[in-house]
Simulated assay, not measured.
Amino acid sequence: MAKTQLNVRVDEDTARAARERALARGLSVNRYIEELVRQDAGEAGRTFVDAAADFMKQYESVFAEEFAETRGTGTGSGEARS
């Protein structure tokens, strides 16, 4: 994958912390920041999936009833009720 240069400005304490944490993990600062961003993006994705799963769980019976009706096993008309 092609790399793109990204310049950021942080205070000295943040820069020092990034260098120390990268060194402790045996990573370059670039790789350390890349991994942090990927983790953050992954967590957002997981948060969305967890919220969607919770929603589906809460409304499982409503969806089950609606889909049963559209398959013709609920009202017998093959269409969902209004």
Rank of each mutant, 00 (worst) to 15 (best):
V37P: 02
E79R: 13
R25W: 01
A24H: 06
R46L: 10
G78A: 06
E79C: 08
Y32K: 00
R46N: 14
E34F: 00
D11R: 08
A68K: 05
D13R: 05
R9C: 14
A41G: 06
E60H: 09
G74K: 07
V29Y: 00
D13I: 07
M56P: 02
D54S: 13
A51Q: 12
E43T: 11
E34Y: 02
F67S: 03
L23D: 07
K57Y: 13
A15G: 07
T70Y: 04
G72A: 01
Q39T: 09
R38P: 01
A53G: 12
V37W: 01
A64E: 11
R46Y: 11
R71Y: 04
E66T: 03
K3C: 11
E69V: 02
E12Q: 09
R25A: 04
S82W: 07
E65Q: 12
R31F: 02
E69C: 04
A18T: 07
A51L: 12
G42S: 09
G78T: 07
R25H: 03
A51S: 12
L27F: 04
R81Q: 10
Q58R: 15
G42F: 07
D13P: 00
R16T: 11
D50C: 07
G72P: 00
F55Y: 15
F63Y: 14
A53T: 14
A80G: 03
Q39A: 08
A2Q: 13
D13G: 04
E12N: 12
A44N: 14
F48T: 15
V49N: 11
A24M: 05
R31M: 04
D11T: 01
E60I: 05
L23R: 07
A2T: 14
L27E: 04
A2M: 08
A41C: 08
Q39D: 10
E79K: 09
L6E: 10
L23V: 02
A17V: 10
V29L: 01
G72S: 03
T4S: 14
A51Y: 11
R38W: 09
K57C: 09
R21P: 04
A68C: 06
A24Y: 00
R16Y: 04
G78F: 06
A15L: 05
G42L: 06
A44K: 12
S61T: 09
R25I: 00
N30H: 03
D40A: 15
A15E: 08
R21C: 06
A64C: 05
N7P: 00
T75G: 05
A44R: 14
V62G: 04
G72E: 02
T70E: 06
D11S: 04
A51N: 12
M56R: 15
D40N: 15
A18G: 01
V49L: 13
V8F: 01
I33G: 01
R31W: 02
E79V: 09
A41I: 11
A51E: 10
T70A: 10
V62C: 09
A44H: 13
F63L: 12
V8R: 04
V62M: 14
R31T: 10
A44Q: 14
Y32W: 04
